[in-house]
Computed example of a mutant assay.
Amino acid sequence: MESIVKVEHLSHKYSVQWAVRDISFDIPRKGIYGLLGSNGAGKSTVMNILCGVLKQTEGYVSVNGVDNRKDVIGLKKFIGFLPQKPPLYNDLTVEEYLIYSAALRLMPDDELQKAVDEVLVLCQIEHFRKRLVKNLSGGYQQRVGIAQAIIHKPELVVLDEPTNGLDPNQILEIRNLIKGIAQERTVILSTHILSEVQAICDHILMIEQGKLVFSGTVEAFDNYIVPNTIFLSLANAPATEVLEQIEGVTGIEELGGSNFRVHFTEAQSVMNRLVEESAANHWRMTEIRLERSSLDTIFAELSRKSSDK
């Protein structure tokens, strides 16, 4: 698939310290791509370079075929950007603010009102068009921030922590809005929240200590570390010492009630033995499954591998 973003050997230095070092990746058109990393990992530097705010120290960056070093104004025509703190003017109405945002994008005067009406409907804030921005809830202010990012119909939308500080219902609403936007354009979602990436993104780019340590699907990320525990539920469970004596079991954790976490040397053989022993000893097994590593565990493992290089 044709790429809308191309990054080749990107590096950037602040004073004497490298914030980003030799990063390369391509992003195809359409879909939601998570830019994941801990605070200070280099995410903001990459975003600012992509959006034409910074010029990199080394490397090549293009959006829709436009080189960010040769034509930054042309580059920005294809990009919509929502910073972590939305750039809102609280004393304007929603409609006034969006007209102003469209004018900043150099849209023709005769197209401004139509563009505003379309994003009001898309972001489901049409009924707030005459309300002052400062009188909106946090969730609706975030919608207004997203509306200004897409009002000029950019092909690439970059969102920095778009659900930060919102309540659970607002988070779900913003996620659905982002998914709708991604049906017609590419969305890059920057966050340090692992569950946010899992809930909304198709692919992940993980940056740690200025280096790209993972690029792939969410499923591949989630399966990065081979499961090393089994969840086991036995209605008539024996003592843990009995379970520990089963060949291939290296440890047992009691999880309360009839539930256990089994550590093993080889998954399938241990699961087969647990099933056989349960049937033979009437332990009444009600559930057995491999436990997938948590996203936090994977994040920590990738970060560790990056620091070891």
Rank of each mutant, 00 (worst) to 15 (best):
F260W: 02
S215R: 13
V16E: 15
L172V: 09
L132A: 08
L112W: 14
A239S: 10
I181W: 00
G216Y: 10
E301A: 14
A267N: 04
V187D: 00
L232V: 10
S294F: 07
V275Q: 11
G65D: 08
N272A: 12
S307T: 14
D67E: 08
A300F: 13
P154C: 12
E244D: 12
Y60A: 12
L35Q: 01
Y60Q: 15
L295K: 11
Y33P: 06
V116E: 00
T297E: 15
E254S: 14
V270L: 04
V94M: 00
G37M: 06
A103E: 15
L136S: 02
S24K: 04
Q245G: 08
T186W: 01
K55D: 09
V133T: 05
V213F: 03
E254P: 13
S306F: 03
E2M: 09
I207G: 05
T217R: 10
I207V: 11
T93S: 06
N281Y: 12
T286R: 09
A19G: 02
I181D: 03
K43H: 09
P87M: 10
L106E: 15
E58Y: 03
A267W: 08
L36K: 12
F214E: 15
H12Q: 04
N68F: 12
N39L: 05
T217W: 06
L36C: 09
I49W: 02
L35P: 03
V5Y: 01
Q141R: 08
H263M: 06
D117S: 12
L82H: 05
T217P: 00
C201M: 00
F264L: 06
L166S: 01
R175F: 10
V197E: 03
P83M: 00
V249N: 02
H282D: 11
L234C: 12
P86S: 03
A19F: 01
I246E: 05
I79A: 08
Q198E: 14
I73T: 15
I146P: 06
F264G: 01
P108I: 14
L54C: 04
A237Y: 13
F25T: 03
Q142A: 05
N281L: 13
K309I: 13
H203W: 14
R175L: 09
V262T: 04
C201V: 06
I288S: 05
S137A: 03
A147H: 04
V249T: 05
G59H: 13
V5C: 05
E254T: 15
D296Y: 00
H282V: 12
L104G: 10
V218M: 13
I151N: 02
I79N: 07
R185G: 02
L234A: 09
D308M: 04
P108V: 13
D167P: 00
K179I: 11
F128D: 05
K77E: 08
I125F: 14
D167G: 10
E118K: 13
L194K: 05
A103S: 14
S306Q: 12
C51V: 07
Q56M: 02
A220L: 02
P86R: 01
L302S: 11
M285Y: 07
I188T: 03
I125E: 07
R273Y: 13
A237K: 10
I204L: 09
E126W: 09
D26S: 04
R29E: 14
N48Y: 13
T286M: 13
G80S: 10
T250E: 11
Y100S: 08
V226E: 13
E155W: 02
N39Y: 00
G257W: 11
L166C: 03
V63H: 01
G40E: 06
Q170P: 12
S233L: 14
P87T: 11
P86V: 02
P87K: 12
C51R: 02
A147M: 03
